[in-house]
Amino acid sequence: MRRHRVLERLLVVPTAAWTLVFFVAPLVLITVFSFGSENLVTFRISFGWTASNYSAFSGSLYLATLLRSLGLSLGTTLGCALLGLPLAYFITRQRPGIQRLLLAGVIVPFWTSFLVRTYSWVNLLQSQGPIDRLAHGLTGHHVEVLYTPTSIAIGIVYSYLPLMVLPIYVALERVNPDLYDAAADLGARPWRQFRRVVLPLARPGLIAGIIIVGVPAMGEYVIPEILGGGKTLMIGNIIVNEFLDVGNYPFGSALAVSLMVVLMILLFALRRVQPAFEAR
């Protein structure tokens, strides 16, 4: 019995070591760096345990950028949820063969390079591009959204949508279809059925999707860089800039830690709301 327990614990060692080395240690390192200061000419870092990096973060530039990132993250997460929930529900209502086909349709874009997919939106959204020409043909008006916050939002929703669809699908796929029939038999029309049956049952998947989409969307920097035309600064772009362009590791670390703290507060808030959400 004891030998079994030892073996069980040994099984955890590789995962624990991996987490310690590649997750906990970098986290500690970044936190330590965030209290340091750097000579930007010689790139020498000294650790005087200063909080100056955090006080610099409270400047209007960084707070405004953080709020912009938060707004875009919330907006795009909502967009993913609005598109992902009906799509996941639709997939679960199909025959198994069709379900597999539709799921493949959701997943297949992941097989293509993220950069290629994002750059393809530049071609789609640019002036005289397919979307602009289609809109002009239909309405007589040009649609020029490339290099605007709208194009960033489109890019994020497109890229993260599968991350919303899959957990919701998993949640709904386990639901006994008889429940939907029972609701219909009891007189629930489709919208009421969706609101009173589908939505409550999809909540665990929906909440998982919100976390999976919302957290990385908050720190997203590649999509704003490519589709934002360098005009919309996000907190992720500032962090990357501090690390790769300026080389100010302490300040970049302070920004990263601050972003993590904000996300943790949001996640704790979500966890507190979740039980009440589930009980309804």
Partner: peptide
């Protein structure tokens, strides 16, 4: 630019923001 590099960076970020 030496020490002025940081000043340039800040101003550039302010422009972008």
């Amino acid at each position: 630019l030496g020490q002025a590099t940081a000043l340039w960076t800040n101003i550039w970020q302010e422009v972008k923001a």
